[in-house]
Simulated assay, not measured.
Amino acid sequence: MKKIIIPALLFLLLSVKGQAVPYQVITVADDLNYPWSLAFLPDGSLLVTERTGKLKQFSATGEVTADVAPVLPELYVAAQGGLLEVLVPSAYSQNQQLLISYVCGDANANTVCLATARWQAQQLTDIRQIFKAEPYRKGAAHYGGRMLQLPDGSILLTLGDGFDYREQAQNPVNHLGKIVRLQPDGSVPADNPFIDQPGYASEIYSMGHRNVQGIVWDAASSRVYSHEHGPRGGDELNNIQAGKNYGWPVATRGIDYTGARVSPFRQYPGMVEPIWHWSPSIAPAGLTLYQGELFPAWQGNLFITALAGKALHRLEMVNGKVVSEQLLLTELNSRLRDVRSGPDGALYILTDSASGKLLRLLPAPQQAGD
């Protein structure tokens, strides 16, 4: 697909140091059907999932090099359910194996599944389901589905509370409202926090979550950051630690969609408070840590895409705390689904719609006389 530069989307932003940071937004690809996640392969090409069931590959210059509909076991596409995230593990160069999260089952009984597959000759082969969250539930909302590979090679997979099952986020027997930790083959790491504790699912890494749709590793501080949707307000940014309880629905700043109070508590003993929150809700959907060289002033900043908020949020972090927040790309007036820091130093963003776009955010061209 031909690269399209949109001159109207040229803005001046204030960096953390106060100087102006000009940037441009380039459309790399369009006509994507509800794109959900993107990932980079070692050759610089991109994989993009569409929630409706497609996996597409784009060259670094935006040409479509593959367009496949993987045959995932029991794939269920409805509302928020479908094909979710693709992760390129650290061992990909050796075995060409990907990890794919998706919703499996049917309208009356569905859950989040995790599969491995090999990406060879622009095709997915050897698809194998390695994990299925328990229990099944009805409805088609609050799945989580984001993944992160930790430095030790293990995988964190986020799992939502199923919307109508929010109390289960505090039930340690199951996976609803949890972040689980697995090995790349689906087995349980021997050092998981609850591995030998009776009454706890051995896969659990953390609990008390509503719907985590962003998770990232900060190597400089050895922190895992994640964000999750609140109801009406109470969206959270958290520092995820093994074995901790993050409160939902016992402690929350949000209220129910009916206007009723979810809980009288914003904090609760033994439960971790968020390091940042949003009220009213922005509906955070993607998360990345900027580590490129094109925007030096943004090094170490967190970037969050917002669906309801229709903006890209830049958070300046100092010692694990948010010291400033800036809203970018509001002029697009688009629901933003995912964001990644690319190997070329650019930021890559997916818009959320039936005609979604893959965008690249780059420094603005130097002007004559600069």
Rank of each mutant, 00 (worst) to 15 (best):
V339H: 04
F131V: 08
P365F: 00
L55W: 05
L315K: 00
W248Q: 01
R137M: 14
Q168P: 09
Q213E: 13
L237H: 01
A39Q: 12
L358G: 01
I215L: 10
A346T: 12
G160R: 01
T252L: 00
R314V: 07
H175T: 11
N110R: 01
D185Y: 08
L41G: 04
G186A: 05
I127M: 07
I240Y: 00
L350V: 07
S202F: 03
R137I: 15
R118M: 13
H142A: 06
T116C: 13
P42H: 04
L327M: 12
L302G: 02
G234E: 00
A60Y: 11
Q129I: 11
D164N: 14
P184E: 11
L327P: 07
A285G: 13
D196Q: 13
V188H: 04
S90N: 12
G53S: 10
V323E: 11
K54F: 14
F303D: 01
V103D: 10
S206N: 03
Y102I: 11
W298Y: 04
K3Q: 15
V86G: 09
A8I: 12
Q366S: 13
L114S: 09
G53R: 02
A133T: 09
V339K: 03
S353N: 12
A60F: 13
A117L: 08
R118T: 14
L9V: 05
I255E: 02
V216P: 06
M317H: 03
G44L: 05
N211K: 05
C104N: 08
Q299K: 11
R166G: 03
A8Y: 04
I304F: 04
P296K: 00
H277C: 06
G145V: 08
Y165T: 11
Q241M: 13
A242G: 09
V339T: 07
V86Q: 09
A201W: 00
E236Y: 00
D164F: 06
R118D: 13
T27D: 06
G153S: 10
L32W: 01
G177C: 07
N174H: 10
T61P: 05
A117V: 07
E236M: 01
Q122C: 12
D191Y: 06
L359K: 08
A91S: 15
A69I: 14
G270L: 00
K310D: 04
N333E: 13
R314L: 06
E236I: 00
E50R: 06
Q19C: 05
T52F: 06
P264T: 03
M317A: 05
K2Y: 07
A115G: 07
L302W: 02
V224E: 02
Y23F: 15
I255C: 03
D256F: 02
E228G: 01
Y165V: 12
E203W: 04
K3G: 08
A141F: 12
Y225S: 09
V25N: 06
Q57I: 07
G177S: 03
Q96W: 00
Y200H: 14
S279L: 10
I26R: 09
L55F: 06
T288N: 07
L329P: 06
T27F: 00
I275N: 02
P269Y: 00
V250S: 05
W276A: 15
I155S: 12
R223I: 14
L362G: 05
Q291R: 13
S281V: 08
L55H: 04
E316R: 12
S187W: 00
L350K: 02
S221L: 14
P231F: 01
D164Q: 12
E63Q: 15
G233H: 01
A283E: 02
V71H: 09
D161T: 03
T52P: 02
A242I: 05
L32S: 06
L159W: 01
